[in-house]
Computed example of a mutant assay.
Amino acid sequence: MIAIFTVALAAGAASALMFASISSGAAISLPLAYFAPLPLMVVGLGWGPVAAAVGGIAATGAMAIVLGWSHSIGFGLAVFLPAVWLGHLALLGRPVATTALVGNPTDLEWYPVDRILVWIVVIAILLATAILLVFGTDAQSIAETVRQLLREAMRGTDGNLTAEQIDQFAKLFAFLAPVALPVNVIFWLTLNLWLAARVARTSGRFHRPWPDLRSVALPPITLVIMATAIAFCFVGGTVAMFATVIAMALLLAYAIVGFAVLHILTLSASNRVFWLASTYVLMFLFSGLILLMTALGIADAVFGLRQRYLQTRPPPLPAE
């Protein structure tokens, strides 16, 4: 128990320091803050969600004392709660119905990766919406808030931004924020959870079988929600801002599904590793190409591409 408590506190301290480093303004602080959920997720997957909660509560309290409540609330909402909740979901399991009837609880049905992805999307929508509401309720109010912040930052400094440049930046921020925020949160949480699971598995403390990530899918209702959100993006005002957040979150979720589809459709391809690696590199260099993966994920949801491929050319599925 003492060892688990020590590990939990160490993970909480690491997460808090990584998150707080963003206030230093150093170049390395941004990637450090990006991976702030990782220590808590590793502890949650390896030692259980209670240990992650203990570390997170200690880190949140310490941050409130040292840096103030604003940093503490930001850490709690953006790092602590998502890390503990996603780690809890990843370890949820229940006896399979057939084995439960015969009294053998060793075979467990684990919480589906599909639903974990849905939860990541929900968390991203809530976080992005909360951040946007801090600035305003629509594009105009957000732009005005950014203008005021920039003017105050420029006052009494050597800043040489003109009024026109401040206005352009404010409008650009108001336009891009509803698009970029949910995308970044989904990528950030998904990457941290995957890395945490890899670390826990390598250390031998990952207590569930490694899931087949190539089978990840979204429920059919998400297509309806996404299409509705895209339609409301053209209404304007607060509704359009919220609709943009939802639409972008679901579009990226389907891009993740698209990568899973690609891993299935290339099973029989020669030089498969080269083509997959090239695809990932191109997506990283030209982020706009992620729309191709989104289209592939949507096409699979509509036409069942993976199921058709495996039925017509059933290859062996090697573990990845």
Results as ranks from 00 to 15, higher is better:
72 S>N: 13
272 R>T: 03
66 V>E: 13
82 P>C: 04
115 R>M: 02
29 S>V: 10
238 T>Y: 04
253 A>D: 01
266 T>D: 14
121 V>N: 00
7 V>Y: 05
100 A>V: 01
148 Q>K: 00
204 G>H: 15
142 I>Q: 07
297 G>Y: 10
128 A>K: 01
93 G>E: 05
65 I>T: 09
45 L>D: 12
58 A>K: 09
71 H>C: 14
57 I>P: 13
151 R>T: 11
179 V>F: 01
49 P>R: 02
179 V>N: 00
108 L>C: 00
275 W>Y: 14
186 I>E: 02
159 G>C: 13
117 L>F: 14
100 A>T: 00
12 G>M: 11
149 L>I: 05
291 L>P: 09
257 V>Y: 07
237 G>S: 10
292 L>H: 15
10 A>T: 08
259 F>V: 12
197 A>L: 12
61 G>E: 09
211 P>A: 08
74 G>F: 06
162 T>G: 15
99 T>F: 06
36 A>D: 00
255 A>E: 09
232 F>I: 11
243 A>S: 09
23 S>Y: 15
10 A>R: 05
234 F>S: 15
57 I>S: 14
96 V>D: 04
1 M>S: 12
38 L>P: 10
181 L>V: 01
96 V>F: 03
87 G>W: 08
279 T>Y: 15
18 M>G: 05
86 L>I: 15
147 R>M: 10
232 F>K: 03
272 R>L: 02
319 A>R: 13
107 D>N: 01
316 P>R: 12
167 D>K: 13
18 M>C: 07
64 A>R: 14
181 L>C: 02
183 V>F: 02
224 V>P: 07
37 P>K: 00
172 L>V: 01
214 R>C: 13
248 M>P: 01
